[in-house]
Structures are given as structure tokens and as C-alpha cells.
Computed example of a mutant assay.
Amino acid sequence: MKGGQFPTFVHAQWLAGGLWYRLHCHEAQRVFGSLAQQLIGLPASNLAWLLSTLLLAGMPFDHCVIEHAVSRSEQQQEPDGRWSSEDGSARDIHTTLEAMRVLRLCQRI
């Protein structure tokens, strides 16, 4: 791990970070520092997956990565209320439901 990043897909970082957070490993904070910088490019479905993983790992709502991911997710909501899927409009319903679920867990809706 270099600078809090693995040489792999970004989702592997939040999955490992969630596990390490749950296990109280100091590496988790390094991963979260790196993740905070990568959230800008994540689509809504990935933000929902990230939030779901980290919330289930027991991270508090006010953790900087959670707050930043929630903010990015809210910014991606379309004017008609849905969240667009990077996999095409046929997946918008799933992405919208996942986004709503994690925002509800964060007490934002």
C-alpha cells in the first residue's frame, strides 16, 4: 500500500478500509484519507456501495469520508429525483433505491 492506496480498483480500498475499521487497524485511516480524494469521480452506484460498506462496518455518520460521500451522492441526484446508473437507464431504478437506502441510513431523507 502506497499513500493509503492499493494498486487495484477503488472499491477494493473501501472494502479493505471497512474491514480494517471494524478490526480497529490503523491502516483504515490511511485508506480513508486516500478515498476522500477519489470520491469526486465515483458514480452514484459506487457511492451507495461505499456508504453501505462503511456504515455496516460501524463508521459514524460524521466521519469525513461518510459526509463527503453523502454530499457527492446528494449532488448526483437528478432533477426528477432519480440517480443515474453508469450501466444505463435500465439500472437507474436499482441505483436510485440503493442511493435512497444509504441516505436514509445516514438520516438524510
Score class of each variant (00 low, 15 high):
L42F: 06
W14R: 07
L51M: 04
I93N: 04
Y21M: 04
H63Y: 07
T8D: 11
G88T: 01
L97Q: 03
L103V: 08
A48S: 15
L35M: 12
L15R: 15
G88N: 02
A90R: 12
L15A: 14
E74G: 10
M1Y: 11
C25F: 08
A48R: 03
D92V: 08
Q76N: 00
L39R: 02
E67Y: 00
A16N: 01
L35I: 09
F9V: 09
G58R: 03
L97V: 03
L97R: 07
L42P: 00
F32M: 07
V102K: 06
Q77M: 10
I66K: 02
C25Y: 09
V65Y: 01
L105Q: 15
R22N: 05
S84N: 01
A44T: 06
E86G: 09
H94Y: 02
T8E: 12
V102Q: 02
A99K: 00
M100H: 03
S89M: 10
M100N: 06
H63T: 06
A12E: 13
Q38N: 08
T53G: 05
S85C: 06
I40A: 13
Q29F: 09
F9A: 15
L19D: 14
H94R: 03
P43M: 06
L15Y: 07
C106F: 05
S34M: 09
R72V: 03
F9W: 11
G18V: 05
L23G: 00
Y21A: 06
Q29K: 11
A44N: 04
E27N: 07
E78I: 00
H68N: 13
W20S: 05
A28V: 11
I40R: 13
I109T: 15
W83T: 01
I40F: 12
Q13A: 12
M59L: 15
H63L: 06
L105S: 13
W49A: 14
G4Q: 07
M59V: 12
M59I: 04
H11A: 07
E27V: 11
F61T: 01
Q75S: 08
Q75I: 00
Q5S: 15
Q5K: 14
Q29C: 03
F61E: 04
E78H: 11
V70Q: 00
L103P: 02
W49E: 10
R72F: 14
I40E: 11
G3P: 08
C106G: 05
A12T: 12
L50H: 01
A69R: 09
V10S: 12
E74A: 09
M100S: 10
R72M: 13
M1V: 09
Q13I: 05
G41Q: 07
A12R: 10
